[in-house]
Amino acid sequence: MKVIGILALQGAFAEHRKLLEQMDVQTCEIRQKSDLLRQSLDGLILPGGESTVIGKLLRELDMLELLQRRIKEGLPVLGTCAGLILLAKHIVNDSNSYLRTMDIGVMRNAYGRQLGSFRTIEEFLGVGSVPMTFIRAPYIVEAGDKVQVLAQVDEKIVAARENNMLVTAFHPELTGDPRIHQYFLTMIEE
């Protein structure tokens, strides 16, 4: 049976866990380096939360390089919101960067403060119309040649894939719609 690790340093990790469990997928929380070393994972989720906090904890808990290596070696990963920021090669409005494994440039808090948070329904390539919840969300401003754009809202890229990496600027764990997670599980099968 497949095991999906969920990075549980800060943020909405419990929501991903709940959704995957409803889909009968086994999950485990990753809070420390030892959790990463102990478990053999079939996939990893980097949840929403505050990217500055999660990124900082990744460094302080000495997990950043190991994670980076695992992802480069092909571990399938789904990054939502803050998770997308962690995977991005660079952040256009922030001098920090974290895992830098995905060839995208992102803008943090691209829709402004909480009053700019919104929900919409848009096409997700290969999935159909998907409800999308954006909370102080980022979007992708530039994507490399190998990056496949999967969804756009108002001409801004909000979901994309590069090899083993899938990212969404919105929160598929909040709407109760399992199709994005299902898409990720299919990706793992490939």
């Binding site: 549980a8 340093l9 800060q10 943020g11 909405a12 990790f13 419990a14 929501e15 929403g48 939360g49 505050e50 906090v53 919101c81 803050a82 909480q114 948070s117 919104f118 929900r119 919840t133 909370i135 102080r136 929160h171 909040l174």
Partner: peptide
């Protein structure tokens, strides 16, 4: 309301934090 949902969602993003 949708706004109330979004506002509860922001709190969810703060979880596990200080």
């Amino acid at each position: 309301s949708l706004r109330y949902e979004l506002n509860k969602n922001l709190a969810q993003m703060l979880k596990g934090g200080v």
